[in-house]
Design a protein around this nucleic acid. Structure first.
Lengths: 351, 351
DNA sequence: TTGTAGGCGTTATCAT
DNA sequence: ATGATAACGCCTACAA
């Protein structure tokens, strides 16, 4: 049980000495061993094993200027992170892809506005090579920050700047086809013969919510007047919005909810009001959230988006910028490349 | 819009020159400014601001041997991380506490057995000052790893070693009073006059599941023969276990489920079998999981544990070892301090 | 193919 | 109170 003398781990110097070579040769072996005679490679490898050598990260970063780590920034002060599977799914996708690239994930949670200072310092401090951020709200300061300090960043979801300012230059992001998916959902309801279709929107300061509302409007344009209430992506918010809508028009025969969580809230209110689903009112959600949609009663017809896939894509895009990238330009000053992923309507029992 | 020359950020050297002082003085100011004349402090501060200086993390770590970061290791290969709010809650608690200590959180997800190598390298590479790990299974290699490389670590949930080996020396962990909570739940059911009480256990290779089973047995000891089936902490697993139990004994009049998610699965099966809850069968869960327990139909009576609080506690314990700790002993070779947090029965409608 | 030596940006020790 | 200067552990020209 030879514990490596606690506190001070062996250095490359020690390995070199142990193997009877120079630091340079030892270093070469550690980094792949190209151009070193097999003979010596073996000796060094053995030394590494015997000493339990592990390269010191800080020292390596100091000279290579690469940390091998990426920040994942979740800008969601609300309780949503707990209850909405969306986040864990996306993080999971990101984690998988990063691991495949031997890159570490540093999680940065934004609680309140003041945290942005801390985050800017962190990002600028060279802790990470790049950043991944999602769940941004309108006028979120993050895009400006990453741009100012020249940190390669990929956003999850279309960032929502106040339109007009030319800020959106060359911003990379991955988003689902929120508008198209919403359109499909509403068209489906229309095709079923529904005529009084209401929409429960998410918080409209998030582009995903705004885009789904746009899709709803697209599809409804010809077919009738719009009718929607704003929720907050939670079941409780969905319930509130549903009650409000029923209040405004008792003749609603279909509802398109901005996400599955709000749909479950709507479901409860609908049932409590004595209406059947989908008999009296058809209901379509959005997300195809993991246990939620399938285990709802009745199971939700919903617009599926491949959340984990989006996470993976975000990571892949970022890795591309960091490594191969068109050039090593620190700004990632390359062509803007939003990537929009397809959605698909999943038919279950609620519509 | 003077972008700081992209790629190369200003160094302490630049700040010193700009302020007309030495690097040493500049450094002192950066680190609080004790023992530097106010006069110079100002000059340096101004230089820092004007240049947009941010200390280089790698360089600092190299000399201080402190990273200001902590690893959070989630050893859960299954899909659970998605659907079980448990994880996000605990991470949230941890994140809050770490932020308060100006410490970063590095998330390490364990997907399969092979990942442990990667994690050991990461931990040994000096990326982090300490580690937080939870959701360990029996014979998880993690405790051995962190001990071997001398990494201060706090576990979430009692680590489950094969009993007998003297491994559990001085291990710090935070856990809910699983056994006591389970005991209370079952006693409550007995007090309600229930006589045929079944238990749906979690995966018994996790100590939380095993401890809850023990609590069930404690309470039941005198009152009747035990009857339990093993689930997997998911709704589907709960449903399967419930069906199996009903199959074995149709006269069950109460069920204590190892967590709320399994309770919802049991609820479905119970309803499908024509039984009412709590009329025919009383049901108690565990966790008081955020939307799950309250929004179940009927809302679940359950054993509450303060998950976020446990997360905060874990982080606080670790910070204690890293900073003030009895001494700076790299091993944290101090008294073992498991901390067991209380649980509380929350009465709702299901029992 | 291998070794020598310089430097990455900080902190910390020692004079001054 | 301030300023040289030596580490910290590693990579990488460059020289041999």
């Amino acid at each position: 049980m030879t514990e490596p003398s606690p506190g001070s781990r062996p250095t490359l110097e020690a390995v070199a000495e142990h193997a009877g070579v120079s630091r340079a040769t030892a270093s070469r072996v550690v980094n792949g061993g190209d151009g070193v005679r097999a003979h010596l490679v073996d000796r060094v490898r053995t030394a590494i094993r015997e000493l339990g050598y592990v390269p010191n990260h800080a020292a390596r970063t100091l000279v290579t200027r690469r940390t091998g780590a990426v920040a994942v920034i979740i800008a969601e002060p609300e309780i949503r992170i707990f209850s909405d599977p969306f986040f864990s799914r996306q993080v999971r996708g990101i984690a998988k892809e990063l691991t495949a690239h031997d890159t570490q994930l540093v999680l940065l949670l934004v609680e309140d506005r003041g945290d942005y200072d801390r985050i800017e310092r962190y990002l600028a401090g060279g802790h990470v090579d790049g950043a991944l951020a999602f769940s941004l709200h309108t006028d979120d300061p993050l895009p400006a920050i990453t741009r100012r300090i020249g940190m390669p960043t990929v956003f999850g979801g279309r960032p929502g700047w106040t339109t007009g300012t030319g800020e959106g230059e060359g911003v990379a992001y991955v988003d689902a086809d929120n508008r198209g998916g919403a359109r499909e959902a509403v068209r489906y309801l229309l095709a079923q013969g529904r005529r009084r279709i209401a929409h429960i929107a998410g918080p409209l300061d998030q582009t995903s919510a705004a885009d789904r509302l746009s899709g709803y409007r697209d599809a409804l344009a010809a077919a009738g007047p719009e009718l929607f209430a704003e929720g907050d992506f939670t079941p409780a918010g969905g319930a509130r919005a549903m009650a409000e809508l029923l209040d405004r028009d008792a003749g609603i025969d279909a509802v398109f909810a901005g996400n599955d969580l709000m749909a479950t809230g709507a479901l409860r209110v609908l049932r409590e009001s004595g209406r059947t689903v989908p008999g009296d009112v058809a209901l379509v959600g959005f997300d195809d959230a993991e246990p939620v949609a399938e285990s709802a009663d009745p199971p939700l017809t919903t617009v599926r988006q491949d959340i984990e896939g989006m996470g993976r894509l975000m990571a892949r895009l970022l890795m591309g910028r960091l490594n191969g990238g068109p050039d090593g330009a620190p700004h990632g000053r390359t062509t803007p490349d939003p990537v929009i992923t397809a959605t698909a309507l999943v038919r279950r029992a609620s519509a």
